[in-house]
Amino acid sequence: MYAAFENAFLTDNGGWKRRDPPTDAQIQCLDASNEVPERIFCGTFGDGLYRSVDSGETWEHVDVATNVMSLTVDPHDPDEVWLGTEPSAVYHSTDGGETWAEKPGLTDLPSASEWYFPPRPDTHHTRWIAVDPGDPEHLYVGIEAGALVQTHDKGETWEDRVSTARLDNHTLATHPDAPDRAYSAAGDGYAETHDKGETWTYPQDGLKHRYVWSIAVDSADPDTVLVSSASGARRAHASSNPESYVYRRDNGGTWQQCLEGLPGPDGMIRPVLAAGAAHEFYALTNRGLYRSSDSGEHWHDLGIEWDESLTTQRPRGLACIK
């Protein structure tokens, strides 16, 4: 397992270890594949992409883009990697990150004139890329903020947002046992589709905090979904006075808070969530890394030695090697 904060990197290779990050630039994202677990991709804001082929012992800089906001290793092929940037663009590698090609036309979509990122006007970015587990040609791409767009031919052409999709998509998820389904954690609420993105619904009964940041789906059950959320962006991200929650939804029911064993909500920056084995979830917080073996009912601190500097850093990525 690999975990990233804004300026810190942790690895678990039989024991957790804090390693020097690949750069002083702020980390934005990371990903790795179960099939090639020693190869890690780490994206930064200001210093581009870094790649490790030895589980984070050493890093090499990869010349592709300056501001890397999202990374996704294709679940069908670990040598295919997708990368999203600010300003919004999508790049694709077919050789494990050795070379990259931009997929043009993304910002030619009609809705692009309405995309924006409030902290940095006119510099919207590709926040998340998710590959359809049933069709490697089909990708969901979340733009922060303004759209959830799709491609059905690996980025050769793009399809604009549909009216029912969320606009401020933070994290997207899919599930191999439900290939027609996708899930979105967005600043304007939770959403899911059951028809490959043609229409989206908003099952939010019980979800009292609707600025949704991270999402994870039970690897054994596509109907069990966990999200992290807050009342708004400031309470989610600010280190001075954060307040965040974790919710679970089972079998189409109402959302239930799942905080037992977690260090929040007061003082907890929005967690990054990841699914492990069946009914197993992980939550990376500014207070520690937590594991649940009962679909989020109870959480247990993994007991990693926690540097005080991490308590004010936002978790950026969690790659769970199953």
Rank of each mutant, 00 (worst) to 15 (best):
A8M: 06
G15N: 15
K17T: 08
K17M: 05
D20K: 11
D31L: 03
E38Q: 15
E38G: 03
F41P: 01
D47L: 08
G48Y: 08
W59V: 01
T66M: 14
D74P: 06
V81E: 03
A89L: 08
H92P: 00
G97A: 00
A101V: 14
G105M: 13
L106F: 14
L109C: 06
Y116I: 08
P118R: 02
D122N: 06
G134P: 11
D135M: 10
L139C: 11
T151H: 01
T164D: 07
L172A: 00
T174G: 02
T174A: 03
D180L: 05
Y183S: 07
G189D: 08
E192N: 02
T199A: 13
G206F: 13
A216F: 05
P222C: 10
V225R: 11
S228C: 08
S229P: 12
S229C: 14
S229Q: 12
A233D: 15
A233Y: 13
R234I: 13
H237L: 13
R248W: 02
R249V: 05
E260R: 10
G261T: 02
G261S: 00
E280Q: 15
S295D: 15
W299A: 04
I304L: 10
I304S: 01
E305N: 09
Q313D: 01
L318N: 03
C320W: 15
